Amino acid sequence: MMTIIEQISPFLDELKAIRQDIHRHPELGLEENRTAGIVAGKLREWGIEVVEGIGQTGVVGIVKGSRPGQRMIGLRADMDALPIAEKTGLPYASQNPGIMHACGHDGHTTMLLGAARHLAANRDFAGTAVLIFQPAEEGRGGARAMVRDGLFERFPCDAIYGLHNRPGMPIGEFAMRPGVVTANCDRWGVTFHGTGGHGGSTPHVATDVTVVAGHFLLAVQSIVSRNIAARETAVLSVGFVQAGAAESPNVMPSELTVRGVTRTFDTAVRETIRTRLEALAQSLAEAHGCRAEVEYWQTGYAVINGEEPAAAARAAAVALVGEDKVAGSLPPSTGGEDFAEMMHVVPGCMASIGNGADGAELAPRLHTPVFDFNDEAMPYGVAYWVGVVTQELGS
């Protein structure tokens, strides 16, 4: 019998063209109208039932097997790009200034489209494959939007699966593990309020938010080292500071805003960070005659792979590339993944697929201006998705 990769090889060039077209026309989260239109159009072209507009720009394709079966599994790919100016110099580089596919979602979408095409023509399975094309993975809440829009009420999946490319991992290799895969993701913001004033003539009669912020920026870096046990994992980073106007350096600002992120695996650790952030902001502001407003909100759950879905995902990968090319012990990442919002409702597994390495150097990192999804990974991703359907619905 022909392997899945051999079966899909006649339309790989078409898939690469689709991927590069999506790359050329990137769209931010909840604005993926063109991309969603391509997805829906291709699914219909291949005879697949389509539902659009779930979670605003999300698309769902439904492929029913030819054999009787009630089990339903979801396969999910993300569609959005990032607000980064591309510097790859590729012939299909982004034509949308300041936006690019710097995380490989163009490849994720296309791999699932390839699986959709194959499954539509080869329905010898029992049950239903639900193909979930999700918007807004990059911080705009696309998975949560789809869930709130009734995704799993309309398509009650027994398990769901996600796949993300991994730079530095060789082409044709996979990784997945049961248990924690990515971290809880939170964002926080503090706005300090003071009187402001003239920085040249009367700073002594003003309350200075920049002094408060200076102490605060140093103090928050002690939270992980001094309030969290060394055996725990936690990250706290500042990513935004804003106050005043560049053209008026003689004006002491009356407001200053600091924003950042935290990543944790443990709920108690998360709560410690939240309470210490607030305590430091309030006490330092008070000490300098200022006032602090503190915000802290959750942007994503930790991805925790279920035992059974992880086993099914591993079996699909091993059947495709062999035991030696499937890693099962990668350490958890402090990165975030919006797929966790779906896994909070339905058990599932997030796996990694190799995006290639460049000799002794790792391939360009995710979220950088020079990243590009490696089209050589495409057939392995398509075949993996088909293998997951075979594992879950093949008998």
Rank of each mutant, 00 (worst) to 15 (best):
V63I: 15
S9T: 15
K42C: 10
I73A: 09
L90I: 09
R123M: 01
A115D: 09
A36D: 00
G41S: 12
L82V: 13
A77S: 14
G55A: 01
R123S: 02
E49L: 10
V60P: 10
M79D: 00
K87I: 05
T57K: 02
P83W: 06
S66C: 06
Q7C: 10
H105F: 07
M72Y: 00
F125K: 11
M111N: 13
G29P: 06
G104W: 04
A121I: 05
E14C: 07
R71V: 04
K42A: 09
T88D: 12
N96P: 00
G53C: 08
T110P: 00
M72H: 03
F11R: 13
L119N: 02
H101P: 02
L112I: 11
I48H: 09
W46Q: 05
H23G: 12
G114N: 13
H118G: 00
G53Q: 10
A85W: 11
Q95D: 13
L12N: 08
I73L: 07
P91E: 13
T88L: 08
Q7H: 12
A40F: 07
L30F: 13
P68R: 15
A17M: 12
T109R: 01
L82D: 14
V60R: 11
D78W: 02
G37K: 08
I18W: 09
V50H: 11
I8D: 04
E49D: 15
H118Q: 01
A36L: 00
G98D: 09
Q20Y: 11
V60I: 15
E86C: 08
C103F: 07
P83F: 05
R71N: 04
G41K: 14
Q95K: 14
C103W: 08
I4R: 12
S66Q: 12
P83C: 07
R71Q: 11
L113S: 00
H23T: 10
Q20F: 09
T35I: 06
H108L: 03
A116M: 04
R24H: 13
I38V: 15
T128Q: 01
D78T: 02
A77F: 08
W46G: 01
S9Q: 15
V63S: 04
A116T: 03
I54F: 06
G61S: 04
E27I: 06
I73C: 04
E45A: 13
A85T: 15
R44Y: 05
R117H: 14
T35G: 01
